[in-house]
Simulated assay, not measured.
Amino acid sequence: MKRLLAWLCAMLSAMGITACDYFNLRELKPGVSTAMEVRERFGPPQMEWRNDDGSVTWEFSRQPEGIECFMITIGPDSVLRTIDQVLNEQSFARVVNGMNGDEVRRVLGKPARSQFFRLKRETVWEWKISHGPDGTSDPVFFTVSFNTDGRVIGTGRYTQYRR
């Protein structure tokens, strides 16, 4: 039964449905769980980041409709080291002027959307970070603006008010 639930959750996660994340996260234990168990629960990562110490960090973004991005680090021994939900204030503070898009993606994961504003000559990436106070409306987004050289020139937030 546990195996069936894990398989079902992995399939739903691959389709962008995150209801199973809560159960998957409870089952995974840093220092104990293996890379294979992480893949069974979360499916294939959207991005793999190689780290200097031989570990790898896997990105599992729940954008554009979800409000989470999990960065899961696996040690060179194929054992789970850490699970971090990176769409938070500490990660937002790490995004500074001059960073390039790869560096921002490494911190926050894949954005929900990207738009180019021709008159301002800048590209804006955005991540949904809140569903709004009642959980169903007025989503809040974190934004990162890039100049034409692909470098960060600022960050911000906005609420998408629904009428």
Rank of each mutant, 00 (worst) to 15 (best):
T18L: 06
H131Q: 14
Q46A: 08
P44A: 07
N100I: 03
Q115C: 12
M1N: 13
S55I: 05
T18R: 04
R3L: 14
T123P: 11
Y158M: 03
Q46Y: 05
E27R: 09
D138K: 08
E27G: 03
F141A: 06
E59D: 09
T34V: 09
R26K: 11
V140G: 06
S130Y: 00
S13Y: 09
P133V: 13
F23L: 13
T136N: 12
G109T: 06
T143N: 07
S13N: 15
Q90L: 10
S61Y: 05
Q63D: 07
N97V: 13
T143D: 04
S33N: 06
P44R: 03
E68V: 11
A14Q: 12
Q90T: 14
I17Q: 05
M71C: 02
E27N: 02
T155M: 00
V152K: 07
L108F: 07
S145L: 04
V56D: 08
R118L: 15
R106K: 11
D134Q: 02
C9Y: 04
R41C: 10
L87G: 09
V96A: 02
R163L: 13
K29F: 01
M71T: 08
H131G: 14
T123N: 14
C69T: 15
I74V: 03
N24S: 13
N100S: 13
S145Y: 11
L87W: 03
T159M: 01
Y22G: 15
D149M: 12
K110N: 13
C69D: 06
R50D: 14
N100W: 14
W127F: 05
V56E: 00
I153Y: 06
L119Q: 13
V86M: 10
P133C: 11
F23T: 12
F116S: 09
Q115P: 09
R163S: 13
G156T: 06
C9H: 09
G156H: 02
I83L: 06
R113T: 02
T18G: 04
W58H: 05
R106C: 08
R105M: 11
R113W: 10
G54F: 04
C9T: 12
R50V: 10
Q115D: 14
R105S: 12
A112F: 10
L87V: 04
T148D: 15
K120N: 06
V124I: 01
R41F: 08
T123E: 14
E122L: 11
Q160S: 11
L5D: 06
W127N: 02
Q85N: 08
D134F: 03
G154M: 03
G75Q: 02
G156K: 04
I74N: 06
F116N: 04
L8R: 04
L87R: 08
Q90W: 00
N88Q: 03
W49D: 15
I67D: 07
C9A: 14
R106G: 05
P111C: 06
W127H: 03
W127Y: 07
K110C: 13
L119K: 14
F141E: 08
S55C: 01
M36T: 15
Q115L: 13
V96H: 07
W125C: 08
K2S: 15
N88L: 08
T159I: 00
Y22R: 14
L8P: 03
S33V: 10
W7N: 11
A35P: 04
P139H: 03
Y158P: 02
V104N: 02
P111L: 02
T123S: 15
R113L: 11
V152L: 02
E122V: 11
A10L: 01
V56K: 09
E89C: 05
W125E: 06
R81V: 07
D138I: 05
